[in-house]
Amino acid sequence: MISIEHINKWYGDFQVLTDCTADISKGEVVVVCGPSGSGKSTLIKCVNALEPFQEGRIIVDGISVGDPQTDLPLLRSRIGMVFQNFELFPHLSITENLMLAQQRVLGRSADEARDTGLKLLDRVGLKAQAAKFPGQLSGGQQQRVAIARALAMNPIAMLFDEPTSALDPEMVNEVLDVMTELAQEGMTMMCVTHEMGFARRVANRVIFMDKGHIEEDCSAVEFFGSPRGERAQHFLSKILHN
């Protein structure tokens, strides 16, 4: 469903991504991990063209992301994305956050958008917060709303860019629970995360990146059993000891 082929990307002279190639099939959950600055977030942002890349191809559901002819808003509306800092719109209520893109992008009526939004809000356990504003919610709650907002667009795949990194420890699990449930329902997911417990339990595959390059791409069992590369071993030993 998402196929990343030989991506190279530079910021000026600095190469942030080097020959990245990966495939994510329908229904697969892929965790992307690696030390900070390894290009994970940059790579996931290339998938829905929030970051441009200079070389290579990314094909999402048969459509080439880098093609200048591609209708980017249409493509993006079909891929859900969840950000590290939630990025709910602070000037809109929770309900309005959920409705906005459904109405403006998908052309749904206000009633339909509200129904869909509230249904998903209920699913992430926040129906009681519908009338509040993002600033009145905890980080964990905001991130669950952000997931509901993305799901309201009926995405064919979901991208998660460090969804729990900005959360207080006691709120991490409420977000991971929602993600786990989503994975079990068969959603295609690409998750940049440091949550190795989540990766072990939920991921079909783990991609390990270092210095802008994909070092490992193997099943979760293989990755946690015995990663082949030295860098991945080093990374795992550091992150699991904490």
Binding site: L50, E87, L88, L100, R104, V105
Partner: peptide, 20 residues
Amino acid sequence: GQINAAYALGLNYRQAMQLI
């Protein structure tokens, strides 16, 4: 991040500016 979130939902430049 706010602009990225608007784009990620499928809004175009004009909508992202005007609404977000």
